[in-house]
Amino acid sequence: IQIFEKGDFSGQMYETTEDCPSIMEQFHMREIHSCKVLEGVWIFYELPNYRGRQYLLDKKEYRKPIDWGAASPAVQSFRRI
């Protein structure tokens, strides 16, 4: 998965294949504004440590949070399923 600090795949980008319990600790990001799921299925969580509201992401590109069903870019953790 590739995660971006700004919408439309702009700003700082990080790519990982590992679960992330805290985007702040692992990537020094506060929010995720866009992402590209390159393979597999992932779950975004609103809070750290896989808690809070969940969003299921299939293999595709998400230009903004509304594309994965979120009203805001408040994603604090994610993991692959």
Rank of each mutant, 00 (worst) to 15 (best):
I1M: 07
I1W: 00
Q2C: 12
I3E: 00
F4C: 09
F4D: 00
E5A: 08
E5C: 08
E5K: 09
K6W: 02
K6I: 09
G7D: 08
G7V: 09
G7S: 09
D8E: 06
D8I: 11
D8V: 12
D8G: 12
F9T: 06
F9H: 13
F9L: 12
S10M: 07
S10H: 05
S10W: 07
G11T: 04
G11M: 13
G11F: 02
G11D: 09
G11E: 09
G11R: 04
G11Q: 09
Q12A: 08
M13R: 09
M13H: 10
M13P: 12
Y14V: 09
Y14M: 03
Y14D: 09
Y14C: 08
Y14G: 12
Y14F: 09
Y14E: 15
E15A: 09
T16W: 14
T16V: 07
T16G: 10
T17E: 05
T17N: 08
E18D: 04
D19F: 04
C20F: 03
C20K: 08
P21Y: 05
P21C: 09
S22W: 14
S22A: 11
S22M: 05
I23K: 01
I23M: 07
I23D: 01
M24D: 05
M24H: 05
Q26P: 08
Q26W: 10
Q26H: 05
H28S: 12
H28Q: 12
M29V: 12
R30E: 13
R30Y: 08
E31L: 13
E31H: 14
E31A: 13
I32E: 02
I32K: 01
H33R: 07
H33M: 12
H33L: 08
H33T: 13
S34E: 01
S34D: 00
S34G: 13
C35T: 14
C35S: 13
C35M: 14
C35R: 00
K36F: 14
K36G: 03
K36A: 11
K36P: 00
V37F: 07
V37M: 13
L38M: 07
E39W: 06
E39C: 07
E39D: 08
G40F: 02
G40T: 02
G40I: 01
G40W: 02
V41H: 09
V41R: 13
V41T: 14
W42V: 07
W42H: 01
I43P: 00
I43L: 11
I43V: 09
F44A: 09
F44K: 00
E46L: 02
L47N: 03
L47S: 06
P48K: 10
P48T: 10
P48I: 03
N49R: 05
N49T: 03
N49A: 08
Y50C: 06
Y50G: 02
R51A: 09
R51K: 10
R51I: 07
R51W: 04
G52S: 01
G52M: 00
R53K: 10
R53I: 03
R53S: 05
R53L: 06
R53Q: 14
Q54D: 07
Q54R: 09
Q54P: 03
Q54V: 07
Q54T: 12
Y55R: 13
Y55W: 11
L56E: 15
L56R: 15
L56F: 12
L57V: 13
L57S: 15
L57E: 01
L57M: 15
D58E: 14
D58A: 12
D58G: 12
D58S: 11
K59I: 11
K59H: 15
K60M: 14
K60P: 04
K60L: 07
E61G: 11
Y62F: 15
Y62C: 03
Y62H: 15
Y62L: 15
Y62N: 10
R63E: 07
R63V: 04
R63P: 05
K64L: 05
K64M: 15
P65A: 14
I66C: 15
I66V: 02
I66L: 09
I66W: 10
W68D: 05
W68T: 14
W68L: 07
G69A: 10
G69S: 14
G69I: 14
G69D: 04
A70W: 04
A70H: 15
A70D: 08
A71R: 10
A71L: 03
S72R: 04
S72L: 10
S72C: 05
P73F: 15
P73L: 15
A74E: 04
A74P: 02
V75L: 07
V75P: 15
S77T: 01
F78I: 03
R79S: 07
R79C: 03
R80E: 02
R80L: 11
I81V: 11
I81D: 15
